[in-house]
Design a protein around this nucleic acid. Structure first.
Lengths: 245, 245
DNA sequence: CGCCAACTTGATGGCTGTCAAGTCAGGTGG
DNA sequence: CCACCTGACTTGACAGCCATCAAGTTGGCG
């Protein structure tokens, strides 16, 4: 039994999907106004998760998926010996919990990296609605497929890229996702530690730190602790395509 | 324009899902007899793919997913510089093409490693049937989720395991999948080259070869070219849990 | 029989991990 | 308000695992 904030219905703070400014990134994407009203019936519980708390844990029964309303998460898998593989970082508008569908138990941990709020989407009900709303069904399939494609990208990172390429790809990916959410793509604060970045990229924290320093020396970025400023986007992109042979 | 075997309807060879001995591994799993009859309406085209041929290529328009009836495939992504990341090996009963849903274009290549046959499942129709048959919808979601979970496993391989651990995990995974299909879990032929194994595991072919030799020296397996015999399953498993700290 | 791709094995080198020391920033308590 | 403490980060020195390069072997196929 582990401490978790109990799910809370928040009628006063209620913000329907139809009003949500993330709806173009999240599950409601592409739905008609009438369909959006239906979706509002489905998503009626939100849950706060404070920094450091688990949204769910490996082994927990799977009942819902979660749409991030505000905040930032990581998902990870732990080995018996305590080592951690971070499988992803998720931000507002993205969906968490898809891993649990297959076995009806979650197969990874989801941990808030800052105080966050998620929309709880009971999965059985989502399937019910999906059978009625073709657009919702199709969009949900796209969300799952996108996760598979994203995972393939991570495999490429881990399988064939060198340390600096991995970090450049990581920064460019973050940059793009901040841009899509209306934030600056060139200046942002990292929510995760060097250790977590390293775990995601298959590197040790010292290697991450060294690569950051090297990028800074080369004038590609400015880095001060968690604050990142990208000075030369094209330079970073070049790191990905320029491979010495 | 690339050479591909044209999709063929094979009424003479027709084997309905309801009759298929793979149905407990594949999409029809858990359907009632009546629902199986419906599914038979959906899956009415099969396609032969000879060894070395592509089932689909990166960039191809996405229209269908594919259930492997016989044979063996790999999926990969190529970098501009020609380097390859193998993202998976697929065998009978497994589903190919899920990557294409998200962008309506395939994002990887699927290549037969031996002469194979697949059932073509038009995706739009699958979604239609899924809205009618709840069990089909749910099982399809499980299949996609399983792929996500599998990918997380590969990330762990690539992110935190050493060469010999990766290869041990790879062999045990193959062994398990052969067992599930009624083949010997301890003796089988690899369908892929050392180079392809290496690409999947983030290693060079020489490292794969050396690890095989080492396993043989230690009495864990017998290996002769593509023929593998597992002599000590527990020994291989121990390689995964025993991590020097 | 000869060719070629796949594979094995050895020698060497480099990238990244490991170990260690020191700096920095934020939070707490006196 | 400041000293202290702790976790996060940076940087250096060294080592090890795996990549690279190279040579030779095997097996399949025309």
């Amino acid at each position: 039994m582990h401490a978790q904030a109990a799910p809370l219905t928040l009628p006063s703070l209620r913000e329907a999907c139809s009003q949500c400014n993330l709806r173009e990134l999240c599950l409601p994407m592409g739905l008609s106004p009438a369909e959006l009203d239906q979706l509002d019936q489905l998503v009626h519980v939100r849950r706060r998760v404070l920094r450091g708390q688990h949204l769910y844990r490996c082994g927990d029964a799977f009942e819902s998926i979660y749409a991030i309303k505000t905040g930032f998460f990581k998902t990870d898998v732990l080995l018996e010996d305590g080592r951690e593989q971070v499988t992803g970082f998720q931000m507002a508008g993205e969906i968490l919990g898809l891993d649990g569908i297959s076995t009806e138990k979650h197969t990874c941990n989801a941990i808030a990296l800052e105080d966050s709020e998620v929309c709880v989407i009971p999965f059985a009900e989502l399937e019910d609605y999906s059978r009625e709303i073709g657009a919702l069904q199709h969009h949900f399939h796209k969300v799952m497929s996108r996760e598979i494609v994203r995972d393939h990208g991570v495999m490429m990172l881990l399988g064939i890229m060198r340390a600096e390429e991995r970090l450049a790809a990581f920064l460019l990916n973050l940059s793009q996702r901040f841009l899509a959410r209306g934030y600056s793509p060139t200046e942002f604060n990292l929510r995760m530690t060097r250790n977590e970045i390293g775990s995601y990229l298959g590197l040790k924290l010292e290697t991450v730190s060294r690569a950051f320093s090297r990028f800074q020396d080369e004038g590609l970025i400015k880095v001060h602790q968690k604050h990142i400023q990208i000075l030369d986007v094209d330079g970073l992109k070049k790191l990905l395509s320029d491979r010495r042979t």
